[in-house]
């Protein structure tokens, strides 16, 4: 398995280049731990395994609660280290339409990423179980509830 960045030959199955640290597997081809149907309720699972259920609403705002500014998102990430990890008060919104979900960055300071690719602000992007979603530096995987 040759690294496309430095041409170093790595053992088959290695995930990162031993020489330069480049990722050897395609970033957009990750598999979820538990397979789920998109019609099921979804949860955000942090890397330590704790989960946050996405409420059954057509629009779910994700961010950090700030009573002084009167910002009360549907999903408050403060308890997940949202402040330290650069989550904005109103960071992103998850839209639900039947069985389909999209996520839209609300012009956050530190951006929203799907499978490590930054998405454009105010432009909904389809998401599904197995996707990795990052708000600022706070990473979750999307799973079926």
């Amino acid at each position: 398995m040759k690294c496309t960045q430095c041409q170093m030959e790595n053992i088959e199955g290695a995930l990162f280049c031993e020489e330069c640290g480049a990722q050897l597997e395609a970033k957009n081809e990750l598999q979820e731990t538990v397979k789920g149907s998109p019609t099921e309720r979804l949860v955000l699972a942090s890397v330590d395994g704790s989960t946050l259920e996405i409420p059954a609403k057509d629009e779910v705002v994700i961010g950090r609660e700030d009573p002084i500014s009167e910002v009360f998102p549907d999903l408050d990430l403060t308890g997940f280290g949202g402040m330290e990890k650069g989550v904005s008060r109103k960071h992103a919104v998850i839209h639900r339409s039947g069985a389909d979900y999209t996520v839209e960055d609300m012009g956050s300071t530190n951006g929203t990423y799907i499978n490590r690719k930054k998405i454009l602000p105010n432009t909904p992007q389809a998401i599904k179980p197995g996707d990795e979603i990052r708000f600022g530096k706070l990473t979750f995987s999307l799973k079926a509830a």
Binding site: L15, F16, E25, E29, L30, E32, T33, V47, G130, S141
Partner: peptide
């Protein structure tokens, strides 16, 4: 495909 959770930890 590579499992996302394992990839993240690795």
């Amino acid at each position: 495909k590579v499992n996302a959770e394992v990839m993240n930890l690795v």
